[in-house]
Simulated assay, not measured.
Amino acid sequence: MKILHTLQWKQFAGTEKVCVDLCNEMAKTNEVFLLSDEKIAPYLSERVNLIKFNFEHNRYNPLFLLQTAQLLIKISPDIIHCHNTKEIEIMYRARNLARFLGSRKIGVVATKHTLQVKKNYKLADLCVAVLEDTKEILPTNSIIIKNAMAYKKPKKRGGREYRSNKFSIISAARLSAPKGMDIIIKALADVNFDFECTIFGSGEEEENLKDLIKELGLEEKINIAGFTDHLQDYLSACNLQIIASAFEAYGLTAIDGVYYSPLLISTAVGICTEILPKELLFERDILSLRRKLNEVYENYEEFKAIFSKVKEKCKGEFDMSNVVNQYIKAYKSLL
């Protein structure tokens, strides 16, 4: 099958990672093209045909739509798979124009990666939700295919950032208010044990979080380390991973946890509400997280055993080949 993915580049975050992993896995047995920014190239398999494309153009510009239609005619894909909202309208209009110019009709699939309501999804022939909550805001022509990620074998490296003699904690997310990094920092300010915490990510709250760490006198214990392409290396060497988000459309870092972390605790958001038992969930407030952290530290092996059952149960669910097979089946329903 010839599959065309489209991705309006913003930064390498959750949506971009899902798209890349799908492209790389699909390219093993299909001819795969990706329209996106060249910045995504380092993450792609050599099997994926990257075509540099700027989705920032005016979606109503006739010349831009004509050029896009001509590109679709040249590629002649069996299916178009959109991963961001603006792409849907561009591909819908260009697809229709290509058909007017003599091309066969090409099915448009759109995956909804966020919980923001957007009207453009009604233009897709098939919508894909990543969880039930997402499906509720999509048109009736929608199905659920849960996200997955490609497994990467962690590397063992030296250095205190990889293996600490203290109880090692990691949290990774965009540094924005809904992700709750401030709650983690405040909760850690008064726990009953010694620890070392690394926060991975970047965003608009970075300076505020650094100020908070300094204000609480935690500079020697909590470090904001920025974005990393090698989160698996750090997670596999830590004692505990924390997710403290207010909401998540899915929550890809939970899959990181299942793959690599010895233990994950989280607020009741996204996929965590489905895979984590109540023992591994906490209320999104400072005191609740602090109590949970103290409890985890005092009964660490018991909590690890609980999470090991989660890891075993979810192993197949988050397998990329399984998710790709679901997408291929969905594509074929439109041919």
Rank of each mutant, 00 (worst) to 15 (best):
K153P: 09
A124M: 14
E220K: 13
M1N: 12
N239S: 13
A244T: 04
F64H: 15
H81W: 05
E204L: 06
K210I: 02
L123N: 09
I137H: 12
T29A: 14
Y331W: 06
L235H: 12
V128P: 04
I306K: 08
G226Y: 14
Q8W: 08
K166V: 00
F303C: 05
P277Y: 13
N192M: 06
V296S: 10
K152Q: 09
D21P: 07
C238W: 00
I242S: 14
L281M: 14
Q67H: 11
K311E: 09
E302F: 12
L35V: 03
P77V: 11
E205T: 01
L289H: 03
A41G: 06
L35D: 02
E46K: 13
E312G: 12
L240E: 04
A98T: 05
Q232M: 10
Y151D: 08
K304A: 12
I183L: 10
L263H: 14
S171R: 03
F195D: 07
G201K: 00
C19R: 04
F53V: 06
Y297D: 09
Q8Y: 12
K28P: 09
T6M: 07
L240T: 00
N58S: 13
I183T: 02
N165F: 01
E317S: 08
V32D: 10
V117Y: 15
R157V: 02
C23G: 14
E25C: 06
C197I: 05
S171D: 09
K214I: 10
C127H: 08
L7I: 08
L44W: 04
F200N: 00
V258F: 09
R95N: 11
A173Q: 00
I3K: 12
S261Q: 04
L287K: 07
